[in-house]
């Protein structure tokens, strides 16, 4: 296995696109190293991107929060300006692994690994986040939802990799939330995850995105459920309908962490709680 550690984006593009064998980008390595050790992947080359300065950027540029592909989870959960604007995205990132994992894992790595249960993805999708991608042909921007093809797969060509996540600045009177259910209190994989991003006007919900994780091969937009809550103040009957709707929308599998029936039910409960929390947050900033 060849090991490369370029120091500029141009070098990285050159190395990555010219290498014809099997290859892996190494960000925090918290997925890659496990996959290497268990022989799930046997790349002929790994390219460590952490020496590239521009990939450590974490700032606001042209109306977007720009988070570089080498920014660790613990940097994200320490950025108070970011957390106050996108508490839900920060909640998802903060749930990834232990202290040790947080110091290495990146949000781009979480997204690129494209696990159906990834904690970083639902809130990003609910926030309408995008990624900046580079390759031989130059750079392009794509939204996170359509970038994901399925478990472990992204719509990227062989020479491409992600440089940044772009999260639009949060709108006025708006807030997000991410909740997951796990059987333990820490260090486990989501049985269900739910990201919500909403806006309020005159105390009623004026727009909402509900995104379910871990209940399908990729995250699911619960659009019909989001429509139900529009113009509401989350009264009891609305919440009940929303819960039923999310149970129907979820398409989980059964495994040791939960049966299909259980996961559907949890999807409804989490959607309810995430909505209520995001709604309360949005009222607070209104």
């Amino acid at each position: 296995m060849k090991y490369e550690a370029p120091e500029t984006i141009d070098q990285a593009i050159d190395i990555y696109s010219k290498f014809n064998g099997s290859k892996k980008i190494l960000a925090g390595g918290t997925d890659v190293l496990v996959q290497l050790r268990t022989d799930i992947v046997r790349p002929e080359m790994v390219m460590n991107i952490k020496k590239i300065n521009s990939l450590h950027e974490f700032c606001i540029v042209d109306g977007y929060w720009k988070i570089g592909a080498a920014v660790s989870a613990s940097k994200i959960t320490k950025n108070t300006a970011f957390i106050s604007e996108w508490p839900g995205i920060a909640e998802g990132v903060g749930l990834i692994g232990s202290t040790q994992i947080q110091n290495r894992a990146t949000l781009v790595g979480n997204l690129s690994n494209a696990s159906p249960a990834a904690d970083g993805i639902p809130a990003l999708v609910a926030a309408n986040a995008k990624v900046e991608i580079v390759g031989q042909q130059g750079s392009r921007v794509k939204d996170v939802y359509s970038l994901i093809e399925g478990p472990g797969k992204l719509h990227l060509s062989k020479d491409e990799f992600i440089t940044h996540i772009l999260i639009p600045l949060q709108r006025d009177r708006s807030a997000d939330c991410y909740l997951r259910f796990i059987p333990r209190t820490e260090m486990d994989i989501a049985v269900v995850g739910c990201g919500v991003n909403l806006s309020v006007k005159n105390q009623s919900i004026s727009s909402a995105k509900i995104v379910l994780g871990a209940v399908g091969p990729k995250v699911i937009f619960a659009d019909e459920a989001a429509e139900l809550v529009l113009n509401s103040r989350l009264d009891k009957d609305v919440i009940l309908k929303l819960q039923r709707m999310c149970e129907e929308i979820a398409t989980p599998i059964s495994d040791k962490r939960g049966s299909i029936r259980f996961r559907r039910q949890v999807a409804g409960v989490l959607a309810k709680r995430a909505l209520q929390k995001a709604y309360a947050r949005a009222l607070e900033v209104s």
């Binding site: 090991y3 550690a5 190494l26 925090g28 390595g29 918290t30 190293l33 496990v34 050790r37 790994v46 460590n48 952490k50 613990s74 202290t99 040790q100 994992i101 110091n103 290495r104």
Partner: peptide
């Protein structure tokens, strides 16, 4: 402790 942060050395390549 790696550059001041605690990490798992099993999840880090020696080359890093």
């Amino acid at each position: 402790i790696f550059d001041g942060d605690v990490i798992c050395s099993c999840l880090t390549l020696a080359a890093e």
